[in-house]
Design a protein around this nucleic acid. Structure first.
Lengths: 243, 243
DNA sequence: CGGAATGTTGATATGCCTCAACTAAAGTGG
DNA sequence: CCACTTTAGTTGAGGCATATCAACATTCCG
């Protein structure tokens, strides 16, 4: 039941030193709640938003809409993330944002945020850092989807999701939410559904993970990380998480 | 023979409105020149730079170093680009930057740049925009390397390079510099060298491009763009270029 | 001029996609 | 609550695109 501003502030404080004045500015943001149904779009490609969204609960994804009607999922976002921060400075959305499962969002007017950046540059730098970490995640996805085997891709994706959830205190034992369908996993990793299914089974059989009902359970972190060539440095988290 | 500060200012002015004060601040940046030999690293994964680099001439690339010693190239940068702007706010480099062919760089101390951002937020917003456009390019690379056929990937890469060169006034008729080896194209698009070679020949035979001696010639832009599913919106360039 | 790097070609193997049929689960209306 | 519909997941067979390997040609560079 933390307030939106606290969620945002605590996310930014993970990597940025914010003073009392900075936090005070953040606490003055107004916000409008928005509940998203499973699969619902928050923003579409081509939109020109005048608010920025903060994830309060659930998961949202960014995706490219392809010419043939398919999707390429680009990244996934959880509580505390700002999945469309780029809209603060790039007018036109080059991708869409949708809910994966149900999600609760909070919308903050761009104008307020930009004003804050002018008055308290440190707040701007902190949000900038967030967008730079997003970029690092995109880069990692390039590497993941280009060179690696299907099994490694999938292992890497699971590692990233679990590691980030863990870092945000959103796990429950060895289990976190990841309410993707197998089709969506395919649209993330660039693999056919049949292959997704078989690769999942292989990972299950190897006792690395469980994945059912939109929940991911990591059963053998060291081997999963090895399988996915996962090195969390790219997430730029200050406090490295021990799993 | 334009000065570094003019190169930077004119790049930022492409998308951001900068006032006289902003430009004056930029013009006060000190810089140190650095000449890179072909293939030389400017920054390595794990480094913690205290300067930011501006490309003055030539081309540099960002890449991930893989466990097996291979590389995954992530993006290419030309005159006016800031290929390591992220180092302003993320301490540790999660990827490396190297020269593709020879390149001339200019190094500007982080401290100066950050000071400028505090005094003139608009300058910060402009550089932020640059990093956001980088992120959009990464996203597009995810889509390119995940779903599309090898031929489409290659066509798309050529489109992007040519379009950006054209936008920066760095083309010569229908030809621009792109001094990659076929091996490096493979390490960009996630394809084996043999396939790179054969795909290149296919594009040549179809009279879409010429690619020789580190120069790329576009012989049929509309068909090349169609082959690569290329839609330049993601580059977020204000003035759309007609080719 | 010689050696190294880069590019080219062919043969073979295989991982993955495609298609198609089927099963299981989840959601819907009577 | 059950029958029905829809969606998601599972499995197998077959073909193809692309990786891999190996030999050779060409260009680059000292």
């Amino acid at each position: 039941m933390t307030s939106p501003n606290e969620v945002l502030a605590s996310k930014l404080k993970e990597h940025s030193r914010l003073g009392a004045e900075d936090l005070a500015e953040i606490s003055r943001f107004s916000h409008q709640r928005r509940q998203l149904a499973a699969g619902e779009d928050l923003i579409r490609q081509g939109d020109r938003p005048d608010v920025a969204a903060l994830v309060m609960s659930g998961m949202v994804a960014r995706y490219h809409l392809l010419k043939n009607g398919g999707r390429q999922y680009l990244s996934f976002h959880i509580r505390g993330d700002l999945p469309d921060a780029q809209s603060l400075f790039l007018e036109r959305m080059d991708h869409a944002v949708c809910a994966i499962g149900e999600a609760e969002m909070v919308l903050i007017p761009h104008a307020q945020i930009r004003k804050t950046f002018e008055r308290r540059p440190m707040v701007g730098f902190a949000v900038w850092r967030e967008t730079l970490i997003d970029a690092a995640i995109f880069r990692e996805a390039i590497t993941n989807n280009s060179g690696r085997s299907m099994r490694a891709r999938m292992a890497h994706l699971f590692c990233e999701i679990f590691y980030r959830a863990r870092n945000n205190g959103l796990i429950d034992g060895n289990t976190c939410d990841f309410p993707l369908s197998q089709t969506q996993i395919g649209e993330t990793l660039g693999m056919a559904i049949a292959t997704v299914n078989r690769t999942l089974q292989a990972l299950r059989r190897a006792r690395l993970i469980e994945f059912k009902g939109g929940r991911l359970t990591v059963k053998d972190w060291p081997r999963l990380a090895a399988n996915g060539d996962f090195d969390p440095h790219y997430l730029h988290l200050k406090r490295a998480v021990r799993i």
